[in-house]
Amino acid sequence: MPKEKIVAGGRAWPSANVLLTVGVVVVAIIVLGGVLLTGGDNQPQGSPTAPNSVLVNKDSHRLTDGGDAVTVVEFLDYQCPACAGYYRNVTADVEKDYGDRITFVVRNFPLDSHPLALPAAQAAEAAGMQDKFAEMYHALYDNYAQWAVTEAGDEISDDEDRARAAFDRFAKDIGLDIERFHTDMASDAVAKRIEADKADAEKAEVTGTPTLFVNGERFTPSGETFGEVRQQFRDRLDAALAQ
């Protein structure tokens, strides 16, 4: 961190300068540290629960529809590497293995730090307009390397042309009307849906992605590896199903 304090070299008035310097540094540490700590405290715990009225709307996209017994809600950002990791290691299998018993809702929370997250969310929502939301959701994550990261694969990409070309390929593969897909992506209706998801995310005190809720309770894994998180999430679902 570019942070250093030059100790006063002036001989004539060291004390006023030293006091001021220390003052500036201390105030900065208190403010930054305070914001970081309170922010940091809020992240993992956040609000532990959120009402289903906030988490799920009538028209929220459902990947699976297995009744009301267990509802999983995921707030996600299509370009977020952690979300792609969750998809590959945790949620894609859950969708398959638990699909007939749980309702899995996914909602948008594109972060500003991911330049292609918003276009990707628009693509998913536009596909939803042609009743192919789940197909596009899968295409986006299954082919994450084709659009979300650079060709070398080690950086978040900001190449929007490449991403849009990839979205078009996915759209063709899942049989969308491309003209309509393009119109819908740029439409107010899609923009409003994404904004509404973000607004609900804020009500639910979601600050990062992915954030998962099981029956309104936030899932906060303690595992270090995806293997552990995967097991914890499945245990959690089993417990909810057993109730």
Binding site: K5, L20, T21, V35, G39, S113
Partner: peptide
């Protein structure tokens, strides 16, 4: 007279800009 205090303010301003800009990332 206030050489290091000015320098400290300068650094704090830049650190604050970095913190604000990448807030989303730090929180994820």
């Amino acid at each position: 007279r206030y050489h290091s205090a000015v320098l400290a303010l300068w650094f704090v301003a830049i650190i604050a800009l970095i913190a604000v800009r990448f807030w989303d990332y730090w929180s994820t």
